[in-house]
Simulated scan of single mutants.
Amino acid sequence: MSTTVAEAGAINGEDAMLAADAFARMAAGVGRVAHCAPATVRLILTAFATGGHVLLEDLPGMGKTTLARALAAVTGGSVRRVQCTPDLLPSDITGVTIFNERTREFEFHPGPVFANVLIVDEINRTSPKTQSALLEVMQERQVTVDGTAHPVPRPFLVVATQNPVDLEGTFPLPEAQLDRFLMRLSLGYPGEEAELSLMRNAAPAAPETLDPVLDGSEVARLNAVAEQVIFADPVYDYVLRLAQRTRRHTRLRAGVSMRASIALCRAARMYALADGRVYVTPDDVRALVGPVWGHRLVPLSGIATAEESAVLLDEVLAEVPVPGPHENRR
């Protein structure tokens, strides 16, 4: 068995350090071709290892597709891409059943969703009917066509992109769709040195040239190890109080759901493991509140922008007392 990720079981320091080493090597690989902040790379790797999906909101040309392809490369997975347009059909994503005249039988022809990483470009430019084709597969890791369920490969990650500025002719994602994404992230502009390097290098390294760090089975074992990371009761209580505060916020029509609280706890375990720790701290929770909860808030004015969500969550974090350091491991 590979020593990259230890077998599932009781968490110990050696397991955590092996996992942290795997995360560091994956992050180094992604960072060689995707020029974005290390904190963003750690977040998207956390989402992938946790089994969560990511919504990337950014302007065109910021490297969103390159980041997703690099993620597939370091995990040895397959990657497919869908360019969303108003006339895109659900079957263009999930696949279709076609009658074979030679065999006189119906055959299922899988769509691009059957990949380890599915890139859905400009998801808000396709119709709500086509958007909803992703609901089942994002939650249950399968698609049902003509009454037959077809499981997708594991691990499976949807990386959807949308432009937060150019909204003409778009269809905003409904709350049920947004809730399927573990995180909403923004890459932002690269630093000066990174942008100069990109400008000077006419032929940057392709994501497909990266060496795999983990395979699918090792990602599953990594997830199993993360489940053993200690989550102390005071930290659970901290997450609960933060969630309850969003539900009582005067500028919110609806706070975060129970699914959002569970998602934050799962992501926090993996986030701590990526740092080589066997326990979750309130700082892990605070680092993940924005990416995991921001897109799930429902303000009185409608769907929250990333900027509005950040302001509201900063208020929530400021109002809820943080557990002391001595409480994190009990």
Results as ranks from 00 to 15, higher is better:
91 S>L: 06
91 S>T: 10
92 D>M: 01
93 I>S: 03
94 T>G: 10
94 T>C: 09
94 T>W: 06
95 G>T: 00
96 V>A: 07
96 V>H: 07
97 T>K: 08
97 T>D: 03
97 T>L: 07
98 I>N: 08
98 I>V: 11
98 I>W: 10
100 N>L: 09
101 E>S: 11
101 E>G: 13
101 E>W: 08
102 R>Y: 06
102 R>D: 15
103 T>R: 00
105 E>R: 05
106 F>Q: 11
106 F>E: 15
106 F>H: 09
107 E>H: 12
108 F>T: 01
108 F>M: 06
108 F>P: 09
109 H>T: 07
109 H>W: 12
111 G>P: 11
111 G>Q: 04
112 P>A: 07
112 P>T: 03
113 V>Y: 03
113 V>Q: 02
114 F>A: 05
114 F>H: 15
114 F>R: 04
115 A>P: 00
115 A>W: 01
116 N>W: 07
117 V>P: 14
118 L>C: 06
119 I>D: 03
119 I>W: 09
123 I>G: 06
124 N>Q: 13
125 R>G: 08
126 T>P: 14
128 P>F: 12
129 K>E: 07
129 K>P: 13
131 Q>S: 03
131 Q>P: 13
133 A>L: 09
135 L>P: 07
136 E>G: 02
137 V>M: 08
137 V>T: 11
137 V>L: 08
138 M>L: 06
139 Q>V: 14
139 Q>T: 10
139 Q>A: 13
140 E>Q: 13
140 E>K: 00
141 R>S: 10
141 R>N: 14
143 V>G: 01
144 T>H: 13
147 G>H: 10
147 G>L: 04
149 A>R: 02
151 P>C: 07
152 V>D: 07
152 V>P: 13
153 P>D: 08
153 P>K: 09
154 R>D: 15
157 L>T: 15
157 L>A: 11
158 V>N: 07
160 A>Q: 07
160 A>V: 00
161 T>N: 05
161 T>L: 01
162 Q>G: 01
162 Q>V: 00
162 Q>C: 01
163 N>T: 05
163 N>R: 08
163 N>C: 09
163 N>E: 06
165 V>S: 08
167 L>Y: 04
168 E>M: 15
169 G>Q: 13
170 T>L: 00
171 F>K: 05
171 F>W: 06
171 F>N: 12
171 F>C: 12
172 P>F: 08
174 P>N: 12
174 P>M: 07
176 A>K: 06
176 A>Y: 03
177 Q>S: 02
177 Q>N: 11
179 D>F: 02
181 F>E: 00
181 F>H: 08
183 M>K: 13
183 M>I: 12
183 M>S: 15
183 M>W: 11
184 R>S: 08
184 R>D: 03
185 L>F: 11
185 L>V: 13
186 S>N: 05
187 L>I: 04
187 L>A: 10
187 L>R: 01
188 G>F: 04
189 Y>L: 15
189 Y>H: 14
189 Y>E: 04
190 P>Q: 08
190 P>V: 09
190 P>H: 05
191 G>L: 11
191 G>N: 14
191 G>W: 12
193 E>Y: 02
193 E>H: 03
194 A>V: 06
195 E>T: 12
196 L>D: 11
197 S>A: 14
197 S>E: 05
199 M>H: 13
199 M>C: 11
199 M>P: 15
200 R>Q: 15
203 A>W: 04
203 A>F: 07
204 P>Q: 04
204 P>A: 00
205 A>V: 04
205 A>F: 01
205 A>W: 01
206 A>R: 14
206 A>I: 00
206 A>G: 04
